[in-house]
Design a protein around this nucleic acid. Structure first.
Lengths: 353, 353
DNA sequence: ATGAAAGCGCTAACAT
DNA sequence: ATGTTAGCGCTTTCAT
């Protein structure tokens, strides 16, 4: 029994397997791909030979020969926790659609342009970009070459597909929940120029307006990080609304931390609502009430859209798919204390950072 | 002027560029690779043609033809924040060494075996695994096929290279710092079976022993997450050491949160030291004193080792490179209060969860 | 059911 | 300095 274990050096190829099985190369190819055109006996023999040689198909050669690479490029931010959830979902969806994923990370030393360039060289057939900061014009240029699906950021250009959470609706949910609890003085810590921040700000204003609370609006400058939230918390302590909606969970965590340290009880003195339902929010000692984005649905739709564009079947016409979020109520929201509910919030439209 | 903008459909190839420039295909290849063997005038002409056609080399064809792919596979956990720092560093190091990176993520639905398998099909020449959970035997099998560099986890097998932080030394730093401040009753919240946890536990014991404090040892079961830390904090509140070293920053954050909420002042009543110097620790409102792993150095060494194995030049013989960490002192450590410094810590070797 | 031949896009080896 | 030939590992005709 010749033990030809796979060792460092030349890789085993179809030809090696063919030689060992005593058949032609194309026939081995047929067997390896489970394509029709080989007898059961041959399949058996070829599989055995491949197994013994530790054969692994070369995806590069395969893609080179096929007209299609069945490869979808994904650009993600290595620092952003939510992108982790999205990447997980993308793998699942791509797998089901029989596509491969090529990951390209954006890091402090590697910008989006480089990340995209490397995917182009890998001959991806479509691009899925998670919360890209690239200008719309460049996205449009890319979209002229290949299907481009932008996730979690609105893009006003008919050439690119967009799958995103309905950010405005998310803030409606948050505000409605707080109003239901009896709050009237509800502030918002915003996300500055972050993707989605403008939509959430708008949703907040609309929702307040809808409840006849427009004159109670208080928008405090925030950002994406815990530090931004901590800074915002100081303004909140001065203004003393009874509840606050925060741009995202990270920022909300910063808000929570400072509030509690300064003796403001949550939810006793102030209710707090986040956005994302990240792992942070789920921690039992944080237990943040938050607006959940449906990562599984978003990623499934993103892949489905990429595949639809590639297969060219009935190219869907709405370029933007907006997914409704849902509210996850945990322990940072409650009815306002009776003595706090009445007093009016100090009105500050936008205070300077 | 023929505007042959790159449009969806067939990609432009070397042949297209060659035709437009009126030269042979290999000559274009030479120009695109900046290889010697073309006149300045030709280079000029070819570059112009390539530019006009929006030509991008096909990395798959390139790798297929070259004997070398110059591709290093990286397996990382999409949820682990520290892996983000490592991936960033790997890109930088690979770039400098003129290698490409192929990323393969481990997600809840995609285990390490799958992640590795896809990299093998991509014909990576070496593998860098971040904190892999794979059994040593499988790592050794892999290492028989190609250079394998394991990062951030000790592996007792001469076939694989290891680059990791000196975890035990990290706990020496932490304990020494606390002893210098005057602490004698120092507890440790451990990481269970997480990579590095055993080493850190050992370092903690050694350091206490070194200061003649062995009989004060108190190890509380913890874990990797904030929740684990929160649970451990309750035990700490009962035992009341004046200081605690925690497995990692995430867990330490959980400890901090509960301590503060239960009215235990940090660092007034209890000092806390983390491990990782993750972005969490750096947050101004957390300001955690912590043991910093040198991600830049670790990744540089990991790539350097992979390259050394591949180039076969003077294959370094120590398979394990242990990098000393350093202490970052922030605001969660201080001298113990005079009335607390004297009393002995309750002695619990390992309490049950 | 099986094999022979061709070629995906590129680079290396050899011509000239 | 430039062109010709061959072939990386695979899949796709097209024969048989």
């Amino acid at each position: 029994m010749t033990e030809e274990l796979p060792v460092r050096g030349r890789r085993t190829t179809l030809a090696d397997v063919a030689a060992r099985a005593g058949v032609s190369v194309p026939l081995v190819s047929i067997v390896m791909r489970d394509a029709p055109g080989a007898s059961a006996a041959t399949r058996e023999r070829v599989r055995k030979a491949a197994e013994e040689l530790g054969y692994r198909p070369d995806s590069r050669a395969r893609m080179l020969r096929r007209s299609r690479t069945r490869l979808i490029g994904v650009v993600f931010g290595v620092q952003h926790p939510f992108h982790g959830d999205l990447v997980s979902g993308l793998y699942t969806a791509a797998d089901a659609a029989d596509y491969e994923l090529a990951l390209s990370a954006v890091t402090p030393g590697r910008d989006e342009r480089r990340a995209v360039a490397s995917l182009l060289q890998d001959r991806c057939e479509a691009l899925i970009l998670l919360g890209p900061a690239l200008p719309t014009s460049e996205l449009a240029d890319l979209a002229a070459r290949m299907p481009v699906i932008v996730v979690a950021r609105p893009v006003r250009n008919r050439a690119v597909d967009v799958v995103r959470t309905d950010d405005a609706a998310g803030l409606h949910l948050a505000v409605d929940h707080l109003v239901d609890l009896g709050h009237t003085r509800i502030a918002h810590v915003d996300g500055g120029r972050a993707p989605g921040a403008a939509e959430r700000r708008r949703g907040y204003r609309e929702a307040l307006d809808h409840h006849g609370l427009a004159d109670q609006a208080l928008i405090v400058p925030g950002g994406l990080t815990e530090d931004d939230g901590a800074a915002a918390a100081r303004e909140l302590i001065a203004a003393r609304p009874t509840a606050v909606t925060v741009f995202n969970d990270r920022c909300a965590t910063g808000v929570l931390d400072v509030l509690r340290r300064e003796g403001v009880a949550v939810p006793g003195d102030m209710s707090v609502v986040g956005f994302d339902d990240s792992s942070l929010a789920r921690l039992s000692h944080v237990a943040l009430t938050t607006v959940a984005q449906d990562a599984g649905r978003i990623t499934a739709l993103a892949v489905a859209r990429a595949v639809a564009r590639l297969d060219g079947d009935a190219a869907a016409d709405e370029r933007e798919q907006v997914i409704p979020p849902h509210l996850v109520v945990r322990s940072t929201t409650a009815a306002p204390r009776a003595d706090l509910a009445a007093a009016p919030a100090r009105r500050v439209r936008t205070s300077s950072a």
